[in-house]
């Protein structure tokens, strides 16, 4: 093995050990991204602009968090809980537009446009590349 290759191998091993330390540091945290937090971060605080109740410490947010907890204990599904809030405060209380009706465009439009323009870009490049070869 040449010296150069040997050096690269050394770097390789070094990086690998770095990676293993890195992974072992974070992966021994137990997983408890609990259900409440998932729900909290989907409900906006109605009085503080631009914050979800997970972030906001306003009185109404704290009450809403309690309400979410109660409804979880009552055995309601996530959808039922979110609907409860949506019926009372309107769609804007949910931190994301729904996946149905007109609102679905918020998700679909950017994906379609990005993919479409990527294809267009590749097509354009190919065309010009052929020109360069001629």
């Amino acid at each position: 093995m040449s010296k150069k290759k040997l050096d690269i191998l050394k770097i390789f091993i070094l990086l690998n050990s770095f990676l293993i330390i890195f992974v072992s540091c974070i992966s021994n945290n137990i997983d408890n991204n609990n259900r409440e937090y998932g729900l909290y971060s989907q409900i906006m605080c109605p009085v503080c602009d631009g914050q979800t109740i997970a972030e906001s410490q306003a009185s109404i947010s704290n009450d809403m968090k309690k309400m979410v907890n109660t409804q979880i204990l009552e055995g309601k599904t996530d959808k039922e809980i979110l609907n409860y809030f949506k019926e009372r405060y309107g769609q804007e209380i949910i931190s994301n537009p729904s996946y149905s009706g007109f609102n679905i465009t918020v998700w679909i439009a950017p994906i379609l446009i990005i993919l479409g323009s990527l294809l267009l870009l590749i097509y354009y490049l190919r065309k010009n590349m052929n020109k360069a070869e001629l």
Binding site: S41, T52, Q91, E92, S95, F102
Partner: peptide, 14 residues
């Protein structure tokens, strides 16, 4: 959404 669907929505972090 306000203009075309008449619905106020929030587009948040997710």
């Amino acid at each position: 959404s306000e203009l075309f669907a008449g619905e106020t929505v929030t587009v948040g972090a997710p």
